[in-house]
Design a protein around this nucleic acid. Sequence first.
DNA 1: AGGAAGATCTACT
DNA 2: GTAGATCTTCCTA
Length: 193
Amino acid sequence: MEMLPKDFYERDPALVARDLLGKILFRRLDSEILSGKIVETEAYYGGNDPSSKAYRGKKKFNELMFMDVGKAFIYMVHGNWLLNIVAHLKGHVGAVLIRAMEPLQGIETMRKNRNVKDIHNLTSGPGKLTKALVITKELNGIDVTKRNSELVMVKGKEESFEVCSSHRIGVKVDLPQKLRFFVKGNKFVSKFS
DNA sequence: AGGAAGATCTACT
DNA sequence: GTAGATCTTCCTA
């Protein structure tokens, strides 16, 4: 299995967001490994992005967005933990929100964690995904480029799919460019449009 | 102390 | 499909 190298994340967040589609996210638990293919992401920037957590400057809770790329940045919104990967050009600020994935390994465990049966409902949203994978604040700052991390990102199989983009979901004020990316036709994306 | 926040679930029409 | 309640932290006053 080939890990995504750190410099993969040292690019414009929108490029990273698009290229994360089709990659495999692994969650190592004590007893089991869970995994899934990423099918939906969103890019966030820094001070010029009104809906970014980094918009109002560096704070304790968002400092990861200003720091080293390739780390998980996790925070709570409306009672849900959301998973981001820090990604930006050198000296810039940004992160990519992981919004949805297609479950691969450990599906029964995810069903238990989520307390739902329908596989299309297990990880088809940012808060659902973290619950299914047992991702909480405890993993904040974890390095997803290290092979032995509890959370790692690896290259998927080479396969072709069509990428669609749209405006970001749920944000108050969006930027003019489209910063949400998803795999066209995939049943596991959170919303169609 | 109060409220907003990158969401989800439920219960309706 | 849409509306409303509820979820839990951290920021701001």
